[in-house]
Amino acid sequence: MNAKTIDRIATFCFYSIAVLIVGILLGLVSFILIRGLGVIDWSFVTEAPGSVLTGGGGVGPQLFNSFYLLILTMLITIPLGLGGGIYMAEYAKPGKLTDFIRLSIEVLSSLPSIVVGLFGLLVFVQYTGWGYSMLAGALALTVFNLPLMVRIVEQSLTAVPREQREASFALGVTHWQTILKILIPAALPGIITGTILASGRVFGEAAALLFTAGMTSPPLDFTNWDFTSPTSPLNPFRPASTLAVHIWKVNAEGIIPDAKEVASGASALLVIAILIFNLVARWLGRFIHARLTSS
């Protein structure tokens, strides 16, 4: 066989793999949507689940909880992740300590989420005395999102060309100002991608939340904006089941008569929510990047 033929075969192989990947994705998404879209209507999206006996109702609180938990988690993860990533990329000196920190990050990121959940149960739920709560859930999610976030921030920062760093230093600009004005803006696309990836895990995670944020949602009053009230959706100390947890629970218990429909509808809704979130986040990221990189 000559080089040209091999080249053609290789090209064909890579195209086929790409087609396969897209095919799997399309197949999966359309399967979920076809099964679920029939169930989704306005009341499904907005109403609370019906009683265990009658079924019916919707997944409104769960949808809200998913987004609210995402925001809470990111409020904790992003600053910590930025701080850790900046430290690793800019301040950590090569040596034993840094190697050890890196090892810890790797191990942390490979912990099974159910283990993180159990850890969360012990520490954030029981030790703190908060009980099942959004905040406990957010902290548990932080535990396993943080390593990802730190690594992505670190990689994005070290990927900024050395020339730009030097250019800034050579103008008499301090390290911290250089980080702030040159490195972070240049690293932003990577950081945003990382944030989106980490967020995707929050939407999809069930195991780490079962024993931290809990499997139930109290009756909520969406007109109640008092953070401390137990019926306020904004109260971070109330238990909250997210869409993913709800799907798991409905399927696992199988008590309500329409478990199949609810699970299918909720799955489709979850997929749609993730898609919308991804698109919006990407658009927002581009917008911020454009604002930062030219006046």
Binding site: P161, E163, Q164, E166, A167, S168, F169, A170, L171, G172, V173, T174, I182, P185, A186, L292, T293, S294, S295
Partner: peptide
């Protein structure tokens, strides 16, 4: 800071910031 303000540097590769 003062030293580097006083002694500027131009590098081999043009290195404008992406702004």
């Amino acid at each position: 800071v003062q030293l580097r303000k006083n002694v500027g540097m131009v590098f081999q590769q043009p290195n404008p910031f992406p702004i």
